[in-house]
């Protein structure tokens, strides 16, 4: 594996290997000395064209715990603001000897373009409305940790699927790993082409093992995707009453950042069923595993 661009590129075996290595990385995180020497002397560039505190910090922590040198390149206040193209930026990174570039970009497919222009590995840390493969991997890791397996589980991904890179990556990866995925939301926000679709959250809840809530942005109301935030949360928001319709063992996930009161109520977000904090913790281990595998740690 040279790059990690799409969750769809991962076979079940490759994804499982990442999750297994992530588990080993997680074990190290429990030790007093958290750092491994694996990537000493290698350079990882975090190239962030969008503000993203949690993903950038997670990648930075992952690279540092593997002893890599980390360069944070944010588009704000950089040559990019002066009009430098992605291609020219790529050449700059190439000249600096980047072994891996972690890219977050508002344009779908930007990591694919970058991969043409640098010799190092490219990790997609979220591109437009396309994909966010490490989020899907950390979600899969979280599901496996909580439920003991992924194969055969029924997963509902709820919300603004149309604009969600998290949904796309999760739908691909969880299907590869044997889960039955249903995309749920109003027809304006749930495209038919990505998998099984349901418009009726209440009907689906009793038969769901995992419910993954997506962030719904307020601006969706302005382009007629939704009549109002209130109607959305009434029909598709996860509140206490809906939580109780889930089977005993079911878990609730959210990639963050949450719109409390919109797609999820505080009662649900803070309940023991919620894995939201674990997802963040697992993110570091999973990203360590990805960097380790891509940079030839093995």
């Amino acid at each position: 594996m040279k790059h990690l661009l799409s969750a769809g590129d991962l076979t079940a075996a490759a994804a499982t290997e990442i999750l297994d290595i992530a588990a080993e990385m997680a074990a190290v995180q429990g030790r007093e000395i958290k750092k491994l020497p694996t990537l000493r002397g290698r350079t990882v560039v975090n190239l962030f064209y969008e503000d993203s505190t949690r993903t950038r910090i997670s990648f930075e922590a992952a690279a540092k715990r593997l002893s890599a040198d980390v360069i944070n390149f944010s588009a704000k206040g950089s040559s990019v603001e002066k009009g430098e193209s992605l291609k020219d930026t790529a050449w700059t990174l190439q000249a600096m000897g980047a072994d891996a570039v972690v890219i977050r970009h508002p344009a779908s497919g930007a990591p694919y373009r970058l991969a043409n222009w640098v010799n190092g590995s490219v990790l997609n840390a979220g591109d437009g409305t396309h994909e966010h493969p490490t989020q899907a991997l950390l979600d899969a890791y979280t599901i496996r940790s909580r439920m003991g397996r992924i194969d055969g589980l029924r997963v509902a991904i709820v919300g603004d699927v149309l604009h969600s890179r998290v949904a796309r990556s999760n739908a691909l990866l969880l299907k590869t790993l044997g889960a039955k995925v249903t995309l749920v939301g109003p027809p304006t926000l749930v495209p038919q082409e990505l998998g099984d679709v349901s418009y009726d959250l209440d009907a689906l809840l009793p038969d769901s093992d995992v419910v993954m809530m997506l962030r719904v942005q307020k601006e969706r109301m302005h382009s007629s995707y939704l009549p109002s935030a209130r109607e959305y949360s009434r029909r598709y928001g996860l509140d206490g009453a809906r939580l109780r319709r889930l089977p005993e063992h079911a878990i609730v996930m959210h990639p963050g950042p949450m719109n409390r009161g919109m797609e999820i109520t505080p009662e649900v977000a803070d309940s023991p069923r919620s894995t939201i904090v674990e997802q963040v913790t697992n993110g570091v281990s999973v990203r360590m595993a990805c960097l380790y595998l891509l940079l030839g740690g093995k």
Partner: peptide, 9 residues
């Protein structure tokens, strides 16, 4: 279509 949905374009 299906390709635009997959590509997030």
């Amino acid at each position: 279509g299906d390709v635009s949905q997959r590509l997030g374009l």
